[in-house]
Amino acid sequence: MPMTDHTSEMDATTDYQAGFVAVIGRPNVGKSTIMNSLIGQKLSITSPKPQTTRHRIHGILTTDRFQVVFVDTPGMHLGGQKSINRYMNRAANSAFGDVDLVLFVVEAGRWTKEDQAVADKCRNLDVPVVILVNKVDKFKDKTELFPFLQKVGDQVAFEALIPISAYTKSGFEQVQAEILKHLPQQDAIFPEDYITDRSTRFLAAEIVREKLMRALGDEVPYGATVEIEQFAFNEEEGRWHINALILVERPGQKQIVIGKKGEQIKQMGIQARKDLMHLLDSRVHLELWVKVKENWSDDDRALASLGYTENP
């Protein structure tokens, strides 16, 4: 459930609370879904595939009592020696700096080497850690979770350990209460109308990439990225014109993205346009193109030109 008490007018008094909260964990534990739910709207893209999140993104929730700046990050992962893997791990590690609280997300009943690597980093932090055990809805008998919760609790010194379900939204009120215990008293960090530190153009590219992640098989999405070439509002037509270039690494991937008689890319375009209209609150004309750019994911210069930089 989204955090409540949305602001009408900011009242920056000494009682006001504001701070940064990092959401960390290995890939595919539900970090982005949790952040989206806590702020009450979709900012980070989601899919069932690991490593859907590639960038660090701030999701900002402002009420008349507090402002929480959530830092959503790529999952910390082992293996994967390409430049893009190193970039994602740097982006994930950057969340540890200058935050007031860390939400360490793990999956109920499953503890991996990647979870252990995140736990090891948490041991050296000077800020409080709250463990969120996600996907508890998979357990009908919650007593079966007790040994796992004990195991997780032994790995990290934590302020609270909260079983939650991003799917059913259970436990989120307790998460909110725990966050507010650790936010410092200070004025808002961002203006009250900000919901993210990322541009609308960036969010548009991510929406298109989400459709790729959801529609295609296991291999192609990891060899694909999206670049927005045109992003302009036509006053006469009263609609946005967006041209998105889907970059893949091999000709075979291009054919898969396009699909038989262009049906695959057409369906992805329909779904992306629907989300873009919601994002922009306006009519949208969207065109998708596919181009082969060999080895883009292991080329530091290519990554930088495509927006894979430490500072958004």
Rank of each mutant, 00 (worst) to 15 (best):
M1N: 14
P2V: 13
T7C: 14
S8G: 15
A18C: 05
G19N: 09
R26A: 07
R26N: 08
P27C: 13
N28E: 08
S32G: 07
T33R: 08
S37F: 03
I39Q: 05
I45G: 10
T52N: 11
T52A: 11
I57L: 15
H58Q: 14
T63S: 15
D64V: 08
D64F: 10
F70W: 10
M76L: 12
H77S: 12
Q81W: 13
Q81S: 15
K82L: 12
A92N: 08
A92F: 06
A95F: 05
G97V: 14
V102A: 11
E114Q: 13
E114M: 07
C122G: 06
P128S: 07
V130A: 03
V130H: 00
I131T: 09
K138S: 09
T143I: 01
F148C: 07
F148E: 08
A160P: 01
A160N: 07
I164G: 08
S165V: 07
K169V: 08
E173I: 13
V175F: 00
V175W: 03
E178W: 02
L180C: 11
P184A: 10
F190H: 12
E192G: 02
S199E: 09
T200Y: 12
L203P: 10
L203T: 10
A204F: 06
A205G: 14
V208M: 02
L216C: 01
L216P: 00
G217F: 00
V220D: 01
Q230N: 09
F233I: 02
N234T: 10
N234Y: 09
W240S: 01
I242K: 05
N243P: 03
I246Q: 02
V248M: 02
V248Y: 03
R250M: 08
G252F: 00
Q255T: 14
I258A: 02
I258Q: 02
K260P: 03
K261N: 07
Q264D: 00
K266C: 05
K266N: 13
K266P: 04
M268Q: 06
Q271H: 12
K274A: 15
K274N: 11
S282P: 03
R283L: 04
V290H: 04
V290T: 12
K291M: 01
K293G: 04
N295D: 14
N295R: 15
R301D: 13
A304G: 05
E310W: 01
E310G: 14
